[in-house]
């Protein structure tokens, strides 16, 4: 009998957890970091919850895929751009974490029982709880954006930074860019907000230049122009640069700059 009662309670908890709608928001990505960890722990422990998450994800996958009937590039064209870094071994979670995880899951389930009872009594209370969690998620999102911006500001305020404005050239007179160069760390931060998005199949390539004689050294291509929302790119530069330039090149970059496609150029003031 005891087993049956336990089973029944377990069943109820799982069902209530599912009914709360938290798993749908988990797939949407609109939960707070803490809630994400809690859901993750819960789905690791209870296969029913994992199955539910997979079904929700499956529905969203089908819906999102159906809205698009255009071309999707084959993996082959992406593959050429993938650079294999030195493979880092990612440690597999130690089994001792399981106790912690189960603890969390138990806490979550207990919490959901409480929520269930509250829900039965007063719908408005559960709405308030939900509201509070949602507000926390909102604060976290804002904080992350802010932290990113603050990190950038910190870098640019470093006293060792030299700032080099790059002016638009014939290929794109309205473009501009700025290089912040930290000679101590051999790093440049390129602010490319003033460049247009590169056309399909083309990338921006950054050059360090020596003036006499004119010698360009490639600092690499910017392959994540669209994806990087701050448009500030961190690039290693061990050269004694006298100027910096940006050209538009075919994907993969060129061995020497296409000067008719020079978008921005600026000299380091001595």
């Amino acid at each position: 009998m005891g087993n049956y009662a336990q089973y029944w309670e377990y069943k109820m908890n799982i069902e209530e957890y599912i009914a709360s709608g938290i798993l749908e928001l988990y797939v949407a990505g609109s939960l707070s970091e803490k809630e994400n960890e809690e859901v993750h722990a819960a789905i690791q422990k209870y296969p029913e919850l994992l199955a539910e998450v997979e079904s929700i994800e499956n529905a969203i996958l089908q819906l999102t895929a159906a809205t698009y009937q255009g071309e999707v590039a084959s993996f082959e064209s992406l593959k050429n751009q993938l650079v294999q870094k030195e493979s880092k071994v990612i440690p597999i979670q130690k089994s001792s974490n399981w106790k912690l995880i189960s603890g969390w899951a138990a806490a979550v389930l207990f919490g959901s029982i409480l929520m269930y009872n509250t829900f039965q009594n007063k719908q408005s209370t559960s709405e308030i709880v939900s509201e509070k969690e949602a507000l926390e998620a909102q604060i976290e999102k804002t904080k992350n954006t802010l932290a990113e911006k603050e990190r950038l500001l910190e870098i640019l305020r470093d006293k060792d930074i030299i700032s080099v404005p790059l002016a638009g050239q014939d290929a794109s007179p309205n473009s501009y860019a700025k290089v912040y160069w930290n000679k101590k760390t051999n790093t440049i931060y390129l602010d490319a907000k003033g460049l247009p998005a590169p056309p399909k199949g083309k990338v921006y390539q950054v050059w360090s230049l020596k003036i006499t004689p004119l010698t360009p050294t490639s600092l690499g291509t910017i392959d994540t122009f669209t994806a990087n929302s701050s448009k500030v790119f961190t690039i290693q530069n061990p050269n004694e640069s006298e100027a910096f330039g940006i050209t538009l090149e075919p994907a993969g970059g060129s061995s020497s700059p296409s000067l008719d496609q020079l978008y921005a150029l600026g000299a380091v003031s001595s």
Binding site: T64, A134, A137, Q138
Partner: peptide, 25 residues
């Protein structure tokens, strides 16, 4: 799902109470 709104943003945009977003969704 498509635009990545938070619950707060969705509640403001659609003018529905924040606490009901989870169950409505």
């Amino acid at each position: 799902y498509f635009k990545g709104y938070t619950q707060v943003e969705a509640s403001e945009e659609l003018n529905i109470p924040l606490g009901t977003i989870k169950t409505k969704n």
